[in-house]
Design a protein around this nucleic acid. Structure first.
Lengths: 147, 147
DNA sequence: TTAGTTGCAAACAATTTGCACGTTG
DNA sequence: CAACGTGCAAATTGTTTGCAACTAA
């Protein structure tokens, strides 16, 4: 790279003495473009299309770094492995359909109220907040699809 | 054992062609007595005090069975392994303190409202609903304890 | 220059499974 | 006795780590 990256994320990395490398930018880019909730393995496969030399270890290390930096979050969507997505403004529920496997996001004002109530009543510093739900989505209920 | 167990859980197992064995009863018993959220490993250790021959595989198999039967639920409390607890009446949040590691439960009427809203707006059959939170508990905020 | 980054392979941790033997209904 | 349950060890899966080579600032 022959220029200085100036996007806020690169800055945020540099501030902690970390480098905004091509591989890290690539992975973050893939995450930001992915409308879903990719796991480390699928990010690795996609990243390899652009950078055939990248290793799975680097994917994991980058995900850990981005997570620690508050840029992405990790969710356990009912399975045994993590799924990742960029941190967004509003809290939302991840609903996974047991039949078709789709992950559906659900936002609602009650979520922020709930967080506020937790802070108020528990007097905690709330840094993580994940809601995962499961069952049958409306489509699979109609078609009668079963897990 | 020289008597027929008649508790509802044994019944619920038998209905699916499953047997309410001593080992299964033991594990369920430990779960029901444990005020916390034990993982498979600690249940195994406790179970071995009563039944020195029990294997970790049996613990895992039993946990899977109890879960499938709707008797217990599994939560991922921020770590890479599962924690288990008997299914209780009301939905609750599991808050894990990043500093002291304590898991604090939080119940609130908003939780049931949220579930109702999800069913209504998403038209789903909601079977799983887990909320995990993290941060610093009020005690660690005071003492300044850090992760 | 030099601290930070990466690939590779080996190490780990949590959980699952094949199979022969044991137990239950 | 026929089906289900269990121990053991090996296999899987997902993730982390040691280390030598590499690269950005």
């Amino acid at each position: 790279m022959d220029h200085k990256t100036t996007n806020p994320i690169a800055e945020s990395l540099r501030q902690s003495g970390r480098r905004a490398t091509q591989k890290r930018s690539l992975i973050l880019d893939l995450l930001q473009k992915d409308p879903g909730h990719p796991d480390a393995g699928s990010l690795f496969l996609k990243a390899r299309e652009t950078d055939p030399k990248i290793s799975l270890a680097t994917v994991y290390r980058t995900l850990a770094l981005l997570k620690k930096s508050g840029i992405i979050e990790e969710h356990r969507l009912g399975e045994s492995h993590g799924h990742f997505e960029p941190v967004t403004k509003a809290a939302h529920v991840h609903f996974t359909c047991a039949a078709c496997g789709r992950v559906i996001e659900f936002s609602h004002p009650l979520l922020d109220r709930l967080k506020a109530e937790m802070k108020r009543k528990m007097n905690v510093d709330l840094r993580e907040f994940h809601i995962t739900a499961g069952g049958l989505c409306s489509r699979c209920r109609k078609t009668g699809a079963r897990p």
